[in-house]
């Protein structure tokens, strides 16, 4: 796991992958992308980091407990943002009837609360995949007795 080329390339490329993932999450309703695709890109960057730097270093950055917490919190956040529509006099997850706008391409805050929904969805997808990765690599370690 002490590969200099893999570590250098990973250190160089991971911030750009995460920035692209965040762009996909936030602008998913105005341009191609969305919460699911952006969350998958962010999760792929974290898996790449863990594969090249080792699992212990990745667990210092994102602990499995935090990953579990984000997974549940993303769903709850989606539910809470959906309830805002009821608070403002519409139905569940309503946007335009509650007084928000439908969005102008290129302007992030022109679309009411859709990007908040996408934020919860992206967090949930990303932390689900990171949790899958942690669980699978843990079981491999336990069975063979050596690190990945």
């Amino acid at each position: 796991m002490e590969d200099l080329v893999a570590r250098s390339v990973c250190r160089l490329i991971v911030p750009f992958i995460q920035l692209y993932g965040a762009y996909l999450v936030f602008y998913g309703h105005l341009s191609p992308g969305g919460g699911f695709a952006g969350g998958a890109v962010v999760a792929a960057s974290i898996v790449l980091y863990a594969l090249s730097f080792g699992r212990e270093t990745a667990e210092k950055r994102i602990a499995p407990g935090i990953s579990h917490l984000l997974e549940s919190g993303g769903g709850l956040w989606y539910l809470l943002v959906g309830l805002v529509g009821i608070m403002l006099g519409g139905s569940f997850l309503t946007n335009k009837a509650a007084g928000f706008y439908l969005g102008i391409p290129g302007h992030l805050f022109s679309s009411g609360m859709i990007f908040l929904l996408a934020l919860g969805l992206g967090l949930k997808v990303a932390s689900t995949m990171v949790t899958l990765f942690y669980n699978l690599s843990t079981e491999v370690n336990d069975e063979h007795g050596n690190g990945t």
Partner: peptide
């Protein structure tokens, strides 16, 4: 392009690892 992004991230990345 929406499906293409998802296919590239999931099909070529995460599914392969799993």
């Amino acid at each position: 392009p929406d499906v293409a992004i998802t296919e590239a991230a999931l099909g070529a990345g995460v599914t392969t690892f799993l």
